[in-house]
Amino acid sequence: MISSQNVLRHELIGLDVLVSGAANPLHKGISGRIIDETKNMLAIQTCRGIRRIPKMHSTFRVRLPGSELVEIDGSVMVLAPEKRISLHEKKRIP
Score class of each variant (00 low, 15 high):
5 Q>V: 10
92 R>Q: 10
64 L>G: 06
20 S>G: 02
25 P>H: 08
45 Q>R: 09
79 L>C: 08
4 S>T: 14
57 H>Y: 10
94 P>L: 08
65 P>A: 04
23 A>D: 04
30 I>M: 11
2 I>F: 09
65 P>R: 03
87 L>Y: 09
17 V>T: 00
43 A>F: 02
27 H>K: 05
50 I>C: 11
94 P>I: 11
64 L>C: 10
6 N>D: 10
20 S>R: 07
24 N>G: 13
55 K>E: 13
65 P>M: 05
65 P>D: 00
36 D>E: 03
80 A>G: 08
7 V>Y: 11
69 L>Y: 10
32 G>M: 01
72 I>E: 02
35 I>A: 11
19 V>N: 05
29 G>H: 03
18 L>V: 12
5 Q>N: 06
25 P>R: 07
31 S>W: 04
4 S>F: 07
26 L>F: 12
87 L>F: 06
19 V>S: 11
68 E>H: 03
40 N>E: 11
58 S>M: 04
44 I>Q: 02
19 V>E: 03
20 S>Q: 03
71 E>F: 14
35 I>M: 00
15 L>Y: 07
71 E>N: 10
83 K>D: 13
11 E>W: 07
63 R>W: 04
42 L>Y: 04
19 V>D: 03
69 L>W: 09
58 S>N: 07
21 G>H: 11
50 I>R: 14
49 G>H: 07
9 R>C: 13
93 I>G: 10
52 R>A: 05
70 V>T: 06
45 Q>E: 15
60 F>S: 00
43 A>I: 10
61 R>Q: 07
65 P>C: 04
67 S>V: 11
43 A>P: 09
72 I>G: 01
26 L>Y: 11
68 E>S: 08
87 L>M: 14
27 H>L: 14
14 G>Y: 07
79 L>S: 07
46 T>R: 01
26 L>R: 08
72 I>R: 00
24 N>Y: 12
82 E>T: 14
8 L>T: 06
10 H>Q: 09
11 E>K: 13
82 E>K: 14
44 I>S: 04
3 S>Y: 15
14 G>M: 03
